[in-house]
Amino acid sequence: MNNLEKILVVEDDLLTMKILNFILKKEGFAVSSAKDGLDAIERIAVIQPDMVITDVMLPLKSGLEVTSYVKDNFPNIPVIVLSALGEEERTVTKAFELGADDFVAKPFNPNEFLLRVKRLLTKKNARIAV
């Protein structure tokens, strides 16, 4: 796995965004951030991330809309959806229907979160190498 892989983090909660950025940068990933779904959608084509990590509840466009946009336009980019919602079952189902590759409930364990990120990037790179 190339540790210069680019990850776009879409999160409107500043503290959660800082935590995610810290965890990912510490592992050597190049991290970009977007504070809302519209900003994320506008940036995806420009930065061409290797992965998108998005919260569900976002201003302007939801994380589910971001997921749908990524999977419709860049199907090889893995998407991890984050949510602190109480309606996790319905949200998880909808996220997977839209093509999300994984779902992480907040609060999350940083080590488990990193394992999920690395697993998806390894799978993506294995598909590209074939």
Rank of each mutant, 00 (worst) to 15 (best):
N3Q: 12
L4S: 12
E5M: 14
K6M: 08
I7M: 01
L8F: 01
V9H: 00
V9G: 01
V10S: 01
V10W: 02
E11R: 00
D12I: 02
D13E: 15
L14F: 08
L14S: 12
L14Y: 09
L15D: 15
L15I: 15
L15V: 15
I19W: 06
L20G: 10
L20R: 08
L20D: 08
F22Q: 15
L24D: 02
K25I: 01
K26V: 05
K26G: 04
E27Q: 15
A30N: 14
A30P: 02
V31E: 00
V31D: 00
S32L: 05
S33G: 12
K35T: 11
L38T: 11
D39M: 11
D39F: 03
A40R: 03
A40T: 02
I41M: 12
E42K: 10
R43Y: 01
R43S: 13
R43I: 02
A45R: 09
A45T: 09
A45S: 14
I47Y: 00
I47T: 03
Q48L: 12
P49A: 00
D50L: 00
D50M: 03
T54W: 02
M57S: 12
M57R: 15
L58N: 09
P59C: 07
L60H: 11
L60K: 14
L60P: 01
G63E: 05
G63F: 05
G63M: 05
L64S: 11
V66I: 02
T67W: 03
Y69L: 06
D72Y: 06
F74R: 00
P75N: 08
I77E: 00
P78M: 08
P78L: 07
V79F: 05
V79P: 05
I80Y: 03
V81D: 06
V81S: 06
L82R: 06
S83R: 09
L85Q: 11
G86L: 09
G86C: 05
G86E: 13
G86A: 12
E87R: 10
E87S: 14
E88L: 14
E89F: 13
R90P: 01
R90L: 11
R90V: 10
T91I: 15
V92C: 15
G99M: 09
G99F: 05
A100K: 11
A100P: 10
D101E: 11
F103M: 11
V104Y: 06
A105Q: 13
A105G: 04
K106P: 10
K106W: 07
N109G: 07
P110A: 13
P110D: 13
E112F: 09
E112R: 09
F113L: 13
L115G: 07
L115S: 08
R116V: 09
R116K: 14
V117R: 03
V117S: 04
